[in-house]
Design a protein around this nucleic acid. Structure first.
Lengths: 110, 110
DNA sequence: ACGAAGGATAACCATTTGGTTATGGTTTCG
DNA sequence: CGAAACCATAACCAAATGGTTATCCTTCGT
């Protein structure tokens, strides 16, 4: 089984590449798309698109639905959850610190 | 000026490496730390840590405060904002979760 | 049946990346 | 002053990455 940390790492790495991010964005905005359609917008070759989709798939960010000779890919935003959890966690330290700062400021004013 | 997209890319790339993420996490949890202290936990050499800190700094995720011969680094969670914005946009579904994140964001921006 | 389309895989290549050791520049301490 | 501590930079290296072209398999249309 994939540990939480391993999954998080896969998602971070998958989204680190701008071409991959663009693919995910395109699928998020436009819904299901075939590889040819994605390739038309991607600015790289079809094999490159297929490789990127493979990486995104391993991170569960996209899903491929085979239909005849074409494969329809779709975004799986659920897979962003590990990132959100991570940011929520490390963003909270920040918020707490702000709260602390607020209190200090109030003390000063009072 | 750095475009929003370039900044976002820098942040994504900076956080894609687990060692770098660990450094950011450490600084988030424990507050300011010197390079020697960070190196002790990092599991890689001091020059490696310095290089990672440089990358994090370019993404504005950390800040270095020079004090005599030592440099104290601190996390700058504000720099997570581009990621949060991106995820908010592309992960709309997760509304409930984002409510929590939005609060954090507002705290951060205030 | 056959040619063309869709898409995955293979083989290959250049560049980037993450690490190392060595070294250099300041600052602190005895 | 001289040695040691802190950290950044340089030089180097192996491995990973992102791209390409070539090819194979399956499926559709005629």
């Amino acid at each position: 089984m994939a540990t939480a940390a391993a999954t998080r790492d896969a998602v971070f790495k998958a989204l680190a590449d701008p071409t991959r991010r663009a693919l995910f964005e395109q699928l998020s905005r436009a819904g299901e798309q075939t590889v040819v359609v994605l390739t038309a917008r991607a600015g790289v070759s079809q094999p490159a698109v297929s490789k990127h989709l493979r990486v995104l798939k391993r991170a569960r960010l996209v899903n491929g639905r085979r239909e005849g000779r074409e494969t329809h890919y779709s975004a799986q935003p659920k897979a962003l959850a590990p990132l959100m959890d991570w940011m929520e966690f490390y963003g909270k330290f920040w918020a707490e610190r702000f709260d602390a700062l607020d209190e200090v400021l109030k003390e000063m004013k009072g």
